[in-house]
Structure formats: C-alpha cells, structure tokens
Design a protein around this nucleic acid. Sequence first.
RNA 1: GCGCCGUUAGCUCAAUUGGCAGAGCAACUGACUCUUAAUCAGUAGGUUCGGGGUUCGACUCCCUGACGGCGCACCA
Length: 594
Amino acid sequence: MGPADPVLRPAALQDGQGSPHEPRGRQRRRRAGWRDRRIHPGVPPGIRQDERMNCPACGSETPGLRDGACTVCWYASKERPKPVRDRFAKLARLRELGVDPYGHAFDRTHDLRRAFEAFEEAEAAVEGAADGAADGGDPPELEGVRVAGRILSYRDLGGSAFAHIGDRDGRLQIHLRRNLLGDEGAALMDLLDLGDWVAVEGAVFRTRRGEVTVRAESLHLLTKTLRPLPFGKEEVADDGRRVVHSGFSDPASRYRQRYADLAVNPDVREVFRVRGRVVTELRRWLDERGFLEVETPVLQPLYGGALARPFSTYHHRLDRKMFLRIADELYLKRLIVGNLDRVYEIGHDFRNEGIDRTHNPEFTMLELYFAFADYEDVMELTETMVGDVAREVMGTTRFEYDGTAVDLAAPWARIRWDEAFSEATGLDPRRAAAEDLRALAKETGRADADELSRVQILDTLFSELVEGRITDPAFVYGHPIEMSPLAKPKRGEPEFAERFEVIVCGFELVNAFSELNDPADQWNRFAAQQRLREAGDREAMEIDEDYVRALEYGLPPTGGFGLGVDRLVMLLTGQTSIRDVVLFPILRPEEGRS
RNA sequence: GCGCCGUUAGCUCAAUUGGCAGAGCAACUGACUCUUAAUCAGUAGGUUCGGGGUUCGACUCCCUGACGGCGCACCA
C-alpha cells in the first residue's frame, strides 16, 4: 500500500455493531464501507526525486499527471462516470481488506464448458447406477471444482446471490452463499461488479430450476474492473434461444474497443474462433500435401506482384525508400527457382487504397506456388481445398450469405472470361472498338471512362456486369493477356492468359495463373507496365531486374494462387463487412478519449 | 473524393410545431439464502459530438468541422 494518504477519509468501518434490531443487510454494508476510499499506489521505482511531481488536487507524489491530476484523483474525479468512481473506491476498499484486486495465478480444474460437461457426465453415471437400485439417494454433485471467469450477471438475493460467469466459450452459473463463504467472502461479495474476473471453488449441482451451478465454498477476486462493460441483458426465450436486450452495438465503438466487444458479444468471439480454425486448417491441408510454409519480406526495396499502390516508408541507415509489400508473389516464385517445389505463405499484404465492405488496407493473403502444375491443376486444388476447409471448420459447404444460398462444394463452374464478357456486353473483348467499350463504360456509370486505358475499361466492365451476378463459386478463366503481366499466354490463344479468378457472392476470392517463366517475355511485360506507369497509371508495375535474373536460372512450369483469407472467413461466418472478420480494422483516429 | 443518414446518461434508445432533456439496463441506498431479462421501494446520473450563427427561447433551424454507417467513385 502507498504512503499515508492525505485524502483518505478516516476509515468508515467502525467495527462496532448496530443495534441488535438493525437489519443484517445494513450491518453488512456498513461493514463493507467502501465509499470515498482512496489509496495512493505510490511512485514506481526508477523515478528520480527531481522527476517527481505533486498532484495539484491532493498533493501526493506522482510520476505524471493525467488530465492535470494524479491517477487516484483522476479516477475519483466527477469527470468520470459514477460507475467508474464507485468501482475505484471499491478497489481501494479491497486493498484495505488485504485483497489484491489484481491477483496472480489461479489453478483451474476445468474451463466453464468442461465443468458443465463433467457434471452432466457424472449425473448420467449416477442415474445409470441408480437404475437397478432402489430410488436413488442424494442428487449427484461434482465436488472440488475450481473455475474462473468474468461476472456476466449478478442476482443478489440478500443472503445469497446467483451470478453467471463467462470465459472464452463457456458460461456457468455460480451460487454465492454468505454463510458458506464466511466474513471474508461475504465482504468480497459486497465489492463485486459485473465484469470482474473471479474464481470459485466448490461443488457443481443442479438447482431446483434445473440449471447446472457451482456452489461456491470459496470466492477469489482475480481482477477488479474499473469500467462497466456494456453487457446486454439476456433472456432465454421459450424456444431456448438467447435474446439479448440492448447490449453493445455501435460499430465505431465496437471496432475501436474490440476488447469490450469481444468480452460482451460471444458471437464476435465465435467469428474469430472460426477465423483461427480456418487458418489452422489451411496450413494443415497444405502441409499434408507437402507444401512448405515460408516467410518472405514484408519490407521491400521494390514492390510488385500485383497492380496496386503501396505504402512507402524509409530506412534510415540504408538511406532509402522502402515499401510494404502488396503481394508475396515475386519472392515466392524465386523460391521455386531455388528448387523449393511447393511453397506457401500466409501473411499480410498492404495496399494503399480505399476502404469498403471487402477491402481493408492491411489484409491476410494465402499465396501458394506449385511446381509442375498449370492453372487447371490449381483450379482443382482450389475447389478441393476450400471445400475441405469449410467442411472441417464448419461441418458443411452450404452457407447463406447476405440472404443468398451458396454452396462451396466442388466442382465449381468454369466460365470463359471472353464468353462471359460477350454475353454480358454484346461486345467482343478482342475486336470491339475502343469507342464502343468506352461508351458502354459510361453507360454503366463510369464518368471517367475517357481517361482509362482499354484494359482498364475491360476490367471495369467485367467487374460491373459479370462479377456481381455470380454467387456460387465460379472459376472465370482466360483473361486478356494485357491484364495479366505475370501470367503465361494461353496455349493456342496468346491474346489470353492462363489465368483464373474465383468469384463468389459477387467478390473475388482467388486470383491464379500458370506462372510466366520465360524471362525475355517477362522483361517485356514489365517494360510494357513501365510504359503505362510513365503514362500515369500509378498501379502499373516497375521492372524487377532481379526477378528476371531469377527466371533466367529457370522457373519450372508452376501454377500459383492468392486467396483472400479475410474474404473466405466472411463467407464462412456470414459477415458482410471485412471489418467484422479483422480484429482491429483501420479507422480514423479517435478525436478525444472518454 | 462525392451524396444520403446518423452522433442525446457508462450501454441501448425516446423527446410532438423551436417551449422544463426522458425511459430501460448498468450504478447507488434499502428488503430478500434456489434466482435467472430476479423482484419490490427509493436515489443519483447530461458540455444533447466540437465551433459559430438565427431566435425571447435550439437536442430540434442555418453554417462549419470531427467521427461513424450506407451508397457511389477509387480499388483485386
């Protein structure tokens, strides 16, 4: 405890008792006496005498001022919401009682879900045994259970209380009885709040109303919370479903304070549990097939591998500009040159562009390269892998996404790019006059069509008129070669590329091709990109001489793909915004704090 | 970047034509030892997102800025 505190009021706990007729409740709460408590934590070690300052409000020593006061005065200030002030006072009272409000380890016997299951098993065993015997004795209990969690709800009945505690994926009722917990435990009960982390030890039993419950024989505070968590009240409807009343739903607050969102909304935890499983299963699937997981540079002197604007940064010792990668592609193919056959990487790419429902500037990409394969092999691999992962993680390949049924089971439709294009536009993508294409682009709402290159117009029209209509996953293959500077020309039709994209629910999930391995052709394609760049296309590529050198050492025939992991998770979890599958999506900075 | 909508108590939301800023939950006080959206009685809680303006009077109308949602644009 801190040094003598000038603000600390004389302890309100006159250990005296009230009159014998005083209600027990009042005696208890007077004993709890937590109001207006303040205890100063003192100055942390390592702060020199001349670096210390005094709180203008209370005069005590402090290493810094939070909004012009020491932390104690800050929490006690009228500026704070009352629940925060109250909790801070309770925390001080806990310290007075010798309870550490920021406890240490606690050795659990079960997590909450398993405690529940263990009890049900014990119950079933007893009932089984009692079958032959005369009418069973005592109802079953499971003793010596030690569990921990956050207090989700609290119903105080005076002499006892029921609460629910929750952990990562479980939720369990606990019953706190004052006569079982003794003076210390009873005092602690009076200082609990929703959100506090607690642990109990006791026997699991079933209440008269049938709920599996831990009867606490001891109660421990693990961590006191100073801020009220925005719990909604939960009702269990007649059909057994949980209905949450009010709760925490403001999107901005949920993203900015994801910790509170996760603590309060089990559905959100579930989305990220699925996300974790998806990544694990992708890895396992690829590892089982002999793919080697590798890591290539995120910080690059020259970016490439996709058409996008990068984030740039600066390395001081090297005195040069660096970029955050927009794709892993060029490094991974260098590894195939180096005989690594089959490689993949799951990592973050960064693209300096707009933010919307399907785009976060920082996103997770799975890229994979497979020697001796072409894009048709990659199609098979893709549909099999995605279907297998969906089944493994979700138990099905059928989903409803944004009100539409989707089935990810293989085989997926295969659609020629040029045929889909002609069908949707009535124009031949190879032969149509640029003016006609431009006119059509304007019709579909592209006011800036005059400034776009032919390829950009083709791409725009395709996205606009074809992609949006596809819901079940489909391979769209055979893009115009000019749109695909890293892909091999299609056999027999060199104006198209051996490339495909997977379109599902109107967005792109995968981009893949037979990798271009002719160094001379690759150099020329880079040079063509360079021209576009010089003509003002800020997404066009630069020439990567080292990559061409690698190709000169021989890239075996290789198929490769990039899969947007965030988007796959969106599909599987039914989320329509990428922000709901990214734990901390990019937001504008917060103005003030509260 | 453009358009529309929004921002009110810790959380979720009301507030008539411009006329005293309210409710539920959470909090606090009290009753209650099998409750479960616990219940009952009472109390407290507000820079109505920031700044400016119109008006006797602004949560409400006007201008401006910040943040967010949706749509468009940009963008795989």
